[in-house]
Design a protein around this nucleic acid. Structure first.
Lengths: 309, 309
DNA sequence: CTGAAAGCGCTTACAG
DNA sequence: CTGAAAGCGCTTACAG
């Protein structure tokens, strides 16, 4: 059942320990031995048993990733970026669809770290009690709850994009956030930034909230001037109403500026907001490596999202 | 560092073996012992070390999943469906972004099975040499190459959807498949079905191929009657041209029927094709369980895709 | 620089 | 029905 370190050691004429040292990059091994071991490994196409290695080190190179909705292309892309970036340093990614499972698995597999995406305050409350270190991405939690949380800074992006809409003569802003139906009290930084902008330009712009597509469309149908810029939860929700607006005879962006977020569904005339997922992935890898090395983690400055107009 | 079976056994006043039996659902354990063990486990919030378990069983409950593009919402949804379905029987999913890595990992982690999505003939050729069993989803390979391959049957879906377009008076069909640019010789069953339909209705319909958005749009701009039904690689590529068609003054679906595939970006007037990912996930779980039990696998009939009009 | 011994936390035969 | 022993494949001290 598979070739083991023992086979390689025997073949190379060294002890198991020496063979192990070669695969762990220990410098002290005599070059001749190293070569023999590598040759044997190649001949036998040996690859170390990660379960055994993890068990004896009490730490595996697996990262447990918790994402709410992989089916959302934004999160899919994030997972994809993390997967390839972490793979550069031989970390593997296991995906989980619940927080509890993630933390449990992290323990059960002696994971290097768990990565939690978009987790809220209430849920995350007892993560710190977990044995394995935890990283947050886009988690809306107070500073002390998560050692490191990579946040997104939408402030400038929304300021710019709202400004561009205003300059285009738009003033009746609408926020279309289906998620508000499920979590009416959600603290969304996107909404906060929209609010800030409108508050700062109260003489020239106003903002209404919609969680239901129909409410928004009815409003527009009743009075086509009642809304002239729609800021959506993400590109997918923008696509959802794009066609309906167009069929109602509305031109995008001339009549209504339609703004998505996350740049996952590029469509003609749709404005959006880009997020550099590769940057995020590289930060995560960086943290994971520091954790593995036992080094302290530094706070990471939020990533500025970029408007796409 | 974490509570182990030893701790539980001591606390419950039984041997390690007995405690192990309890967690493995071995019937023969005396109920009183079982209860003591369970209580101790709860008190200590014990969960078994999966690395150790996998190592001693020479088989883990990890499934290695290879997907080309997690950022494509269709594959993201598939991963998500697999994740939650496999979790029902305590399988964990590690995601990989290359075939080689998948098969390597499958060995290194003594995976229950690897699952390969959308892999072509040439690449897959030596999968069978892998130690761990391999399942295919949407893999275009000859029967003997993969023990089980869950395929999609688009024939009826395309027949119906083409028929509906024809009935609507459309006859100049276009296939918009950006993937053809990268793989000009791709054998796509979707294209084959389109071809079949058109061949069977040669007196009333014809079909042109486009791999580039601009070629297609230029063609339409030059003569708006030259194309009246566009069949796209997937919903995302349909969304990509949706807005451009609309801005060219074309009504969808009145002037041009626009057909996506995979139902990931629902848009007004867009036709698509639905694929029951939950069904697929349940078949995969079924196979994984059979493999784990050492049972033989039966061939799985392809899943019929459903038109969404 | 190298290796024999002990150990990581579990399971699998094998006795009883 | 239960447990002592051996083993899964590696790594970590510890001697030399």
């Amino acid at each position: 059942m598979g070739v083991t370190l023992k086979d390689i050691a025997r073949e190379a004429g060294v002890s198991i320990v020496t063979a192990s040292r070669v695969f762990n990059g220990v410098k002290s091994v005599r070059p001749a031995f190293r070569r023999k071991v590598m040759n044997a490994a190649k001949r036998f196409s040996y690859s170390p048993n990660l379960l055994a290695r993890g068990l004896s080190k009490s730490r595996s190179k697996i990262v447990a990733l918790y994402l709410r909705e992989l089916g959302n292309p934004f999160f899919g892309r994030l997972a994809s970026a993390l997967c390839s970036e972490l793979a550069r340093k031989s970390y593997d990614l296991v995906i989980c669809d619940s927080l509890g499972k993630t933390l449990g698995l992290s323990r059960a597999l002696s994971c290097a770290c768990s990565v939690l995406v978009s987790v809220g305050d209430e849920e995350i409350v007892d993560c710190l009690s977990s044995d394995s270190p935890t990283l947050g991405i886009f988690c809306s939690v107070p500073e002390n709850k998560l050692p490191v949380n990579i946040e997104l800074d939408f402030s400038e992006a929304y300021w710019e994009i709202c400004g561009a809409a205003l300059k285009d003569g738009k003033r009746s802003f609408a926020a279309f956030f289906p998620i508000l139906k499920q979590y009416p009290n959600l603290e969304s930084s996107k909404l906060a930034h929209l609010n800030n902008f409108v508050a700062a330009h109260a003489d020239r712009a106003d903002l209404q909230y919609f969680s239901s597509e129909n409410e928004l469309l009815d409003k527009i149908a009743a009075d086509s001037k009642s809304v002239d810029a729609v800021f959506c939860e993400n590109d997918l929700s923008a696509a959802q109403i794009y066609g309906k607006l167009v069929r109602a005879g509305i031109r995008i962006p001339e009549d209504i500026v339609l703004v998505g977020c996350d740049a996952t569904v590029p469509m003609e005339g749709l404005w959006s907001i880009g997020i550099d997922l590769d940057w995020i992935a590289s930060k995560v890898l960086n943290c994971v490596e520091k954790i593995s090395a036992g080094e302290a983690l530094k706070k990471i400055a939020p990533l500025k999202a970029k408007p796409i107009i």
